[in-house]
Structures are given as structure tokens and as C-alpha cells.
Nucleic acid binder design. Structure first.
Length: 909
RNA sequence: GGGCGCUUAGCUCAGCGGUAGAGCGCCGCCCUUACAAGGCGGAGGACCCAGGUUCGAAACCUGGAGCGCCCACCA
């Protein structure tokens, strides 16, 4: 044999760590991830994803790894398909979240009251924090292998993006979509800011429902009201009943006397009251309840704010409760009412839901906190709903359209002002003469009166106000940039369902409103064409991952132990869109690590078996042998499956298909059956076999590359088929390789091998002991078996294999039936007949069940009449085969001398 | 009070009209010159329950149960 020219120094075990660190830097250096809008053309369509920006504050967790891999996979595939791809990365300043983290940090550093630093100094400290930790996210993303265009890294508080925020605000302000008003807001007493409705979490708690009595001022009676927050009665300014409620109609217009203030509170009629709940009368606390606020608006009741921003009772409250914490006040108010005999009923526990701050989980207070800014949503919601219903934006899975439109239907105005320092300051100024105006650029004077004494609104905008602009502000909006024209609308948004409302819906609303159709590539201002919604990663016990539970998995730790490819594979395989939770532990990366190693070693075999001539040439093979046709056919089937799955964003299915093909087909059968040709074959046979193995492997690596970029690149380089797999073309279909005959024939051969292996195992024949076999089979399956006889001998460890189409005397042999063909294994005194009888009996048991079922089916006239002909025919053939096998096995039992305990035929049982 | 999702092998999940699949785990045997991060063989399932549609249902329809989630101004 000629000396081989291949590299035999490839290490036995795949070392993800060293491979991964080498390649990522190389890819970035070569500029593979950089998008260029000028390259976009008819033949080179754009494909763009903007990364949902992680918060600058934290480190990435495993959920980010999932989400990002789900973006990198389509990005890498489209890049290979020749699209001009842009994956635009960035981070979010995350107003409240960051401010809270930095405040906590400062406190730990001895700054007791961070707000005492003053606005400017505090904001400086946050920027310092951001500079320090913002990069960690980038490093993590690079370790994952994400193919982002780092030259376009954005941050929501970048100058350009901040200008976008101001332009958006001013435009909406001038169009009356943003207004300032005094309304009840959700107030977080811990973070001391207002929150939008979407920033609340709802939580069921076991509280109390206390019913107490208000005496009528004229002493003629009383009226009872119920509440779960009895302290709010300090802020009651009236009592409401339903206008049609006969029980109370005569009381409307009278007043009750407040037990602490002594003031007279009017009894009013309002149809918002549900006469069926409680007593049918409601205490009205306009400053601390959204419903009551509206009731008060309609009925003219005054507002009395009895809470301070920190959740303590204010001086405005009667009865000497001022200064008490709200929970303490609840107990005290209850006590005093009780002492005065005014409590008429108590229910404890009373389960009801409370709103909590989505950042710090404190119970929020509905509160009147002066004027707040709102976005009027009614004009925005309609087009956003239409876009989803008409399919201009498509949801994957489709079922999310329902919740999305339902949310838009019930939308209330969006509170966008936050009493924080970290964020985009509201671009509105007030002059001393009471004029109010919004401006994109910082003004010096009031445009109305020219006064220089102007002051900017102290509040900042809700983080989500800037986030909603993300898909276009990152591309240069409000300028009509090349990026915008080339890549907007973006192609896909990949995100979790938890921010469907908070973010996705708002991006669609604002995109449709703000972006001018003429500046986009399609003339549609919609931010993206597809929205892919995935679930959330949980821990192994399916609990939410959180720092306080200590069950957070750091992607870097997984990468360190198993490699980025392993993590990516694990996470993609989990990400079924039907599931809302993905439980995951560290060990789940095992399978991916093993898979990478398996591919590595398969490649090692292929390269080490490379024939001397034509080693590096990979040509589209012309199918030759049965084995080659089979492998090409199976590979093409896999390719088609992967393509389809990826088009449908079923990356889980794509990952499983690739795993199955490579491991169970390519390695277990393809490589194993190729060994005789590779090691003992003629030069021709060796070369052609190797050619197919290499061709298939090289293409499969490309199919797998989007999911496991590193190991595929490392191996692919050895083919010297191009510069990098990152920019190698995506495998084109080769439908002509599908060969169902070859698949059918090889599957017969596989089953012959399996049946012999099982036989060996059943009889405890050690691998070192030889057995021989004779197979009786006709037609093309016989040809198949003959052409693969050497391979079968090797795989089943036979020292002899006879193949014939003549009936043979089966005496003295075990009979195995494979797809109707007989496989005879001479017992030759080496095997225990009792064991063989047992084996046959076990088989007969299964056989009987199958036979009965088949017979019943074929006896069913409906089945014969209505089932498709091929189904009926298949059933007939099956029954026939079963009967033949049964006859053979019965004969065998007789021969082995254990027929006595053999069961009768199925019909007689 | 509405709505959505899930319920399939010990665990985590695919399958979504033609007699049950994967990964991990488990039990045997095997260091067979790609891989012990491996090979070969195996065990293990009233596909939540009850009705219905159908020749045929894990799959489709109706109802129910359990779990999870979302929405909602029951004070």
C-alpha cells in the first residue's frame, strides 16, 4: 500500500477550548460579520436581526445564550446562503434596573443616601459602572460564537440613539400623542418612581377584607363599605353606590361622617359600582385607587393624597397616623376602628392580587404623584393590530397573535415618565411664565415669550420608550441612512414571550407611526417581518432562575467545561416553540460535547483513511456502489429536513435531524460499512468510497455550522475547500440523490446485521467466537446483501456468510426471519438449544399479538373498503410474513425438541 | 372572571390520522486499529380521564382533572 500523505497527528479527543478561542478572533479579523449596505442587491438580499439588547447592568445568563443562539443560527445560515447579513448587537441602559443596582452598590461603598450626591454626580457614577460592566456582556457574547457586527454595537444612551428618542418624543408631543396629566400611577415606594402597567407583576396574596361602617352625618343610619387596604380610608372623600341600587337610592346626596377627620363625605351614584359585590357600597379613595379616581372624576369628589413617596402616611391624613409605614398604618387604623365598634365584618385570609414592582417586587401603591407624562395609545394600537392580523408581521408560533391583539384591544394610556435620574431626560421645558414646550435640541430661551429662565422637566423616560425605537434607531433613524434603506424592515425578531407587550407590541406601534415608508427597503414601516417567540430557560427543577435562588447558570461556566458548541447544541435542542419553559442543568451540555467529539473522531477516520491521490479534492460524487447511493440518499434526506426545519424556525428539529444523521447513520452504518473498502479495497474502490464519505461529511459540516460553528470550522478547514466555513455556501439540494431503493436495500442489510448481533447477544456468544450464517433471500435484496457481504461479515463478526435464493434444509440451525428472508445460523453443537427455544418462544409471543391484530384489521370490511389500497396491501403482506415466520419457528421448536410447551397457532388461543 | 399552554419511557421532551421516538438515566456484553465523551444488545409506555368523529385516534371534536402562564379597575 502506498504511503499515506494524511495528517495522523490529529488529537484523539476534541479540545473545544483551544479551537474556540482561535477561531472567533480570526472570524472577526477577517470581517465576516460586518455588513455593508452597498453590497445589497437583487442577487444579494439583506437579512437583518437586531439583538434584543441585554441590560448593561448584569452578566448574561443561560437564557441569553438560548436567545442569542436562536438568532445566530438563522444569521449564519443566511450568510452562507449569500444574503447580506447584519446582526446588530447592543445593550440597554435599563433605567430602573441599573439605577437600583448602582444605588445598592454605592450604599455598599458607604454612600448612605445615593441621591444626596446630586443628579449630575450620580449619573456620572452610573456611567462609570456602565463602562466597567458593559463590556462583560460583549465578551460573553463572543465566547458564545455570536456572529454580530461589532462595528455597529449600540447602546440606548448613545448620542445618536438619544437624538432618536428626542425626535420621537417631540414628534409625538406635537401630534398630541404625548400629553401630561394628573392621573393615578403605579408607584413603587422602594424605587420611588412611577411604573407603567406593563411593569407590574401580579401576585396572589392572603390578605384581609375588612368591612367597616360609616355613620350618616345626619345620624339617620349608616352605610357599610369593604376594603382590603383599610388604611386607605384615611384618604376617602366619598362613598359610591350604583345608581339603580334600590337599597341605597334614598341615601344618594346625603353624607357620611369620617370618623377621624369629622368631615362630611358625599354619597354619590356611579355605575362603575358592582351592586353585587360586598355591601354594594364602595368607599372612594380618589388618590389611591385607579377606579376610585375615575369615579371621583365623574362625580366631582375631591382627591386627598395621604401617602408619601416612600410609602408612609403623609401629614394630609387625619387621625394622627402620619409618619407610619403603610402596613403599620393598616394595623393601627383597623385597631382604632375596632375600638370604636365600626368594624362590621372581617374575612381572613382573603385572597386577592396585588401589583408588585417588576424590579424590586415591592407592593406598588396606586398614587397621585403630581403630573406624569403619557402616551395616548388609541391611534397607535389599531395599525399595530392590523399588521399582525394581515400577516405583514408573522408570529412563530402563530398562537401568539391572539394575546398580542387582545392586549392592544385593552390598552390604556402608557405612563412614560419616571422619577429617576438614569435615562433619557424628558425633552420638555417650562418657562417662568408657564409656557411649556418640547425641543430636540436643548433650548436657551422660551420660544413663546423669549424668556431665558427656563427649566427642563426633571423626569426621565421609561426605558421602554427608547427600546421601542431599537429596530430603527440602531439603523440610523431619524436620518434616512443607507442602513435603514438596506435593512429595515428587519427580517426576524427573536425574543421571549415575557416581553411581548412590554417591548414587541410597542416596537410595532412606534415603528408604524414614526418610520417613514419611503426610507425603508420595502416601503413598509413595520419593524420586522417575522417574530419568533421562545420560552424561558429554567433550572432542572423547572424553577425560575434567579440570583436569590442561587440557581443561575453562567454560560461562561458551561463553555469552560463543555465548549460553546456544546452549549449551543444543548440550548437549541431544548428550544421547542411549543414549550414555555426549558428546564436545564449544567449536565445538559453533555450531549453536545459528546456530539462534537463524535464528529471530530468521524472526521479523524475520514482524514486518516484518505487515499494518496486526490485527497483534497471534493467533487460532487457520481453515485456508484449501493453503500454510496444509500449514504448520499440519507444525506439528502437530512439536508431537506434541516432546511425545512430552519425555514420554520424549528431549530430543535434541525439539531436533532443532524445529530441522528451524523451519529446513527453516517457513523454507525456509513463509516462502519465503508471500512472494508477503505482498509482492504482496491485503489479505485477506496478512492470512490472515500470521495463519498468526504463529500457527505463536508456538506454535513456546513449544515451543522450555524448550530455548532467552531467544531465544524476546525474540521472543515482540513478539507481545504475554501477560506472559511463561515462564508462557505449553504448546501444546495441534490434531489437526484434520493434513492428509495437503495435505502430499502440497505435497511435490509442493516437488519440482517442487527438480527445476527441480537442472536449473538441472546446466546451470550462472545465477540471473539466466530459464527457463520446463511441467508435465503431473493431479488434485489439478495443482490444488496451480496454486494455488501464483506461488510456484513465484518459488522456481524461472521467467519462465513452464504447467500442463496434456494430453500435450504434448516435443520441444525437457528432461524432468524428478517423482512421475510431467512437467516440461518448453524448451531453446530456450540449453542444451547434451551436458550434458543426460549428465544423462539419470546419471539412467538410478539408474533401472535401482531398476527391477531393484523387478522382483525383485515377482517374489518370497513378497513378493506375505505382504507387506501396501499395500506391494505401492506397489511396483507405483513400478515403473510408473520405467518411464514410462525411456521418456520414452529418447525424449529419441534426440531429442537421443545415443541411440547409451544403455544398453538394464534387462531386457536 | 376571562384566555393561552402543557399532560407521551425513570427524567427532559419530539411526534400531531395508519400498530410509539430522541437525549440523558438504567441493565448486560465489549479496550473490535475514528471515538470508553465510545461500540453492540436489551429492559422500560392503558401516549391524564370520559365521551364522540373515523375503516383506523397519542394525534381531530366535546367535556373533565392536574400543573404552569398571561390578561382583568371583585372595592
Amino acid at each position: 500500500m502506498a504511503e499515506r500523505s494524511f495528517d495522523t497527528t490529529i488529537p484523539k479527543a476534541y479540545d473545544a477550548k483551544s479551537v474556540e478561542s482561535r477561531w472567533y478572533a480570526e472570524w472577526v479579523d477577517r470581517g465576516y460579520f460586518r455588513a455593508d449596505p452597498t453590497r445589497v442587491s437583487k442577487d444579494r438580499p439583506p437579512f437583518c436581526i437586531v439583538l434584543p439588547p441585554p441590560n448593561v447592568t448584569g452578566a448574561l445568563h443561560i437564557g441569553h445564550a438560548l436567545q442569542q443562539t436562536l438568532q445566530d443560527v438563522p444569521i449564519r445560515r443566511r450568510r452562507m446562503q449569500g444574503y447580506e447579513t447584519l446582526w446588530l448587537p447592543g445593550t440597554d441602559h435599563a433605567g430602573i434596573a441599573t439605577q437600583v443596582v448602582v444605588e445598592r452598590h454605592l450604599r455598599s461603598q458607604g454612600v448612605e443616601d445615593p441621591r444626596s450626591l446630586g443628579r449630575e454626580a450620580f449619573v456620572d457614577r452610573v456611567w462609570e459602572w456602565k463602562e466597567q460592566y458593559g463590556n462583560r456582556i460583549v465578551e460573553q457574547m463572543q465566547a458564545l460564537g455570536n456572529s454580530c457586527d461589532w462595528s455597529r454595537l449600540r447602546f440606548t444612551m448613545d448620542e445618536q440613539l438619544s437624538r432618536a428618542v428626542r425626535v420621537a418624543f417631540v414628534r409625538m408631543y406635537e401630534d398630541d400623542l404625548i400629553y401630561r396629566g394628573e392621573r393615578i400611577v403605579n408607584w413603587c415606594p422602594t424605587d420611588q418612581t412611577a411604573l407603567s402597567d406593563s411593569e407590574l407583576e401580579h401576585d396572589e396574596v392572603e390578605g384581609e377584607l375588612v368591612t367597616f361602617r360609616y355613620p350618616l352625618s345626619d345620624g339617620s343610619g349608616h352605610i357599610d363599605v369593604a376594603t382590603t387596604r383599610v388604611e386607605t380610608m384615611l384618604g376617602d372623600t366619598g362613598v359610591a353606590v350604583h345608581p339603580d341600587d334600590e337599597r341605597y337610592r334614598h341615601l344618594v346626596g346625603k353624607t357620611v361622617r369620617h370618623p377621624f377627620s369629622g368631615q362630611d363625605l358625599p354619597i354619590v351614584a356611579d355605575s362603575a359600582v358592582d351592586p353585587g359585590f360586598g355591601t354594594g357600597a364602595v368607599k372612594v379613595t380618589p388618590a389611591h385607587d385607579a377606579t376610585d379616581f375615575e369615579t371621583a372624576e365623574r362625580t366631582g369628589l375631591p382627591r386627598l393624597n395621604i401617602l408619601n413617596g416612600d410609602g408612609t402616611i403623609s401629614d394630609a391624613a387625619p387621625g394622627g397616623f402620619a409618619g407610619l409605614d403603610r402596613y403599620e398604618a393598616r394595623r393601627r387604623v383597623y385597631q382604632v376602628l375596632r375600638e370604636r365598634g365600626l368594624i362590621v365584618k372581617e374575612e381572613r385570609p382573603y385572597v386577592h392580587s396585588v401589583g408588585r414592582c417588576y424590579r424590586c417586587h415591592s407592593e406598588i401603591e396606586p398614587w397621585l404623584s403630581g403630573k406624569q407624562w403619557f402616551v395616548a395609545v388609541s391611534r397607535l394600537a389599531g395599525p399595530a393590530k392590523e399588521a399582525a392580523e394581515s400577516g405583514r408581521v408573522r408570529f412563530f408560533p402563530l398562537r401568539w397573535v391572539g394575546p398580542y391583539t387582545a392586549w392592544l384591544d385593552n390598552l390604556r394610556d402608557w405612563n412614560i415618565s419616571r422619577q429617576l435620574w438614569w435615562g433619557h431626560r424628558i425633552p420638555v421645558w417650562y418657562c417662568e411664565d408657564g409656557h411649556e414646550f418640547a425641543a430636540v435640541e436643548d433650548p436657551d430661551t422660551c420660544p413663546e415669550c423669549g424668556s431665558g429662565r427656563i427649566e427642563q422637566d426633571p423626569d426621565v423616560l421609561d426605558t421602554w420608550f427608547s427600546s421601542q425605537l431599537w429596530p430603527f434607531s440602531t439603523l440610523g433613524w431619524p436620518d434616512e441612512t443607507d442602513d435603514l434603506r438596506a435593512f429595515y424592515p428587519t427580517s426576524v425578531l427573536v425574543t421571549g414571550y415575557e416581553i411581548l407587550y412590554l417591548w414587541v407590541a410597542r416596537m410595532i406601534m412606534s415603528g408604524l407611526y414614526l418610520v417613514s415608508p419611503g426610507s425603508t427597503r420595502t416601503g413598509d414601516p413595520i419593524p420586522y417581518e417575522h417574530v419568533v417567540i421562545h420560552g424561558l430557560v429554567r433550572d432542572e427543577k423547572n424553577r425560575k432562575m434567579s440570583k436569590s435562588l442561587g440557581n443561575v447558570i453562567d454560560p461562561l461556566e458551561v463553555i469552560e467545561r463543555f465548549g460553546a458548541d456544546a452549549l449551543r447544541f444543548a440550548v437549541v435542542r431544548l428550544a421547542s416553540p411549543e414549550q414555555q419553559n426549558y428546564p436545564m442543568g449544567l449536565r445538559d451540555a453533555d450531549a453536545g460535547r459528546n456530539f462534537a467529539n463524535k464528529i471530530w473522531n468521524a472526521a479523524r477516520l475520514v482524514f486518516e483513511a484518505a487515499p494518496e491521490v486526490g485527497v483534497r479534492e471534493i467533487r460532487a460524487p457520481k453515485s456508484a456502489s449501493l453503500l454510496q447511493s444509500w449514504l448520499l440518499s440519507r444525506h439528502e434526506a437530512c439536508r431537506a429536513e434541516v432546511d425545512q426545519a430552519m425555514e420554520e424556525y424549528r431549530f430543535d428539529a434541525a439539531a436533532i435531524a443532524l445529530h441522528r444523521f451524523l451519529w446513527s447513520e453516517y457513523c454507525d452504518w456509513g463509516l462502519e460499512m465503508a471500512k472494508p473498502a477503505l482498509y482492504e479495497g482496491t485503489d479505485d474502490r477506496r478512492t470512490s468510497t472515500w470521495g463519498v464519505l468526504a463529500w457527505v461529511l463536508e456538506r454535513t459540516l456546513r449544515l451543522l455550522h450555524p448550530i455548532m460553528p467552531f467544531v465544524t470550522e476546525e474540521i472543515w478547514q482540513r478539507f481545504e475547500a475554501g477560506e472559511s466555513i463561515v462564508v462557505a455556501p449553504w448546501p444546495e439540494p441534490h434531489w437526484e440523490h434520493r434513492d428509495e431503493d437503495a435505502e430499502r436495500r440497505v435497511s435490509f442489510v442493516e437488519e440482517v446485521v442487527s438480527s445476527l448481533r441480537r442472536f449473538r447477544s441472546d446466546h451470550d456468544v462472545s465477540p471473539s467466537r466466530s459464527i457463520s450464517a446463511r441467508v435465503i433471500v431473493e431479488g434485489d435484496r439478495r443482490e444488496a446483501l451480496e454486494s455488501l457481504a464483506g461488510e456484513v461479515r465484518r459488522l456481524a463478526r461472521l467467519d462465513a456468510l452464504d447467500i442463496t435464493d434456494e430453500t435450504l434444509d434448516s435443520r441444525g440451525s437457528a432461524r432468524l426471519v428478517v423482512q421475510g428472508a431467512e437467516v440461518l445460523v448453524p448451531l453446530a453443537g456450540v449453542l444451547d438449544p434451551a436458550v434458543e427455544c426460549e428465544r423462539i418462544r419470546r419471539r412467538l409471543l410478539d408474533l401472535d399479538g401482531d398476527t391477531v391484530r393484523a387478522e382483525q384489521k383485515l377482517a374489518n370490511e370497513g378497513f378493506l373498503a375505505k382504507a387506501p389500497a396501499e395500506v391494505v396491501e401492506a397489511e396483507r403482506r405483513k400478515l403473510e410474513g408473520l405467518k411464514e415466520e410462525r411456521a418456520g419457528l414452529d418447525a424449529q421448536l419441534v426440531e429442537l425438541g421443545c415443541a411440547d410447551d409451544a403455544a398453538g397457532s394464534p387462531g386457536e388461543r
